[in-house]
Amino acid sequence: MKSLILHTATRLMIGVLVLFSLFLFFRGHDEPGGGFIGGLVGAGAFTLYAIAFGTEATRQVLRIHPITLIAYGLLSLVVSGLIPMFIAEPFLTGKWLFIEWGAFDTKLSTPLLFDIGVYLCVVGFIVTVIFSLEEEG
């Protein structure tokens, strides 16, 4: 779509949207947010870009094919489920790793890995749908 307003606004908005999606993603687990909602907002950013600049440009920005994104998402889900099985605990058991740096304490966990998987799947799926719709019409 050739619209100066949309083009300018998209350039400004896209960074905010991606940051907001990451904010929602990391806020998840204990508070509202997480992989699914974060992924939706992230997919929203790419959708906006696709409407403003076309799918070809969006593919270049995305760099990675959306279906490959889904594949990596699934891989991350599976790995997060399988990790506890190596220490003889049931599939999908949440395993946590606390790292104390002093200023920022970091919590790494299999649920985080699972959520990354959800995020990637959601972005990949929605972008695939939007691309197919845009390219057919």
Partner: peptide, 24 residues
């Protein structure tokens, strides 16, 4: 508890994921 019970579900999922990764 039998941890293996998840395999009939997990193996097809892994297979499908690998298939997607190498779909070219």
């Amino acid at each position: 508890m039998n941890g293996m019970l998840v395999l009939p579900v997990a193996i097809p999922l892994i297979t499908a994921t690998l298939g997607l990764l190498f779909r070219k």
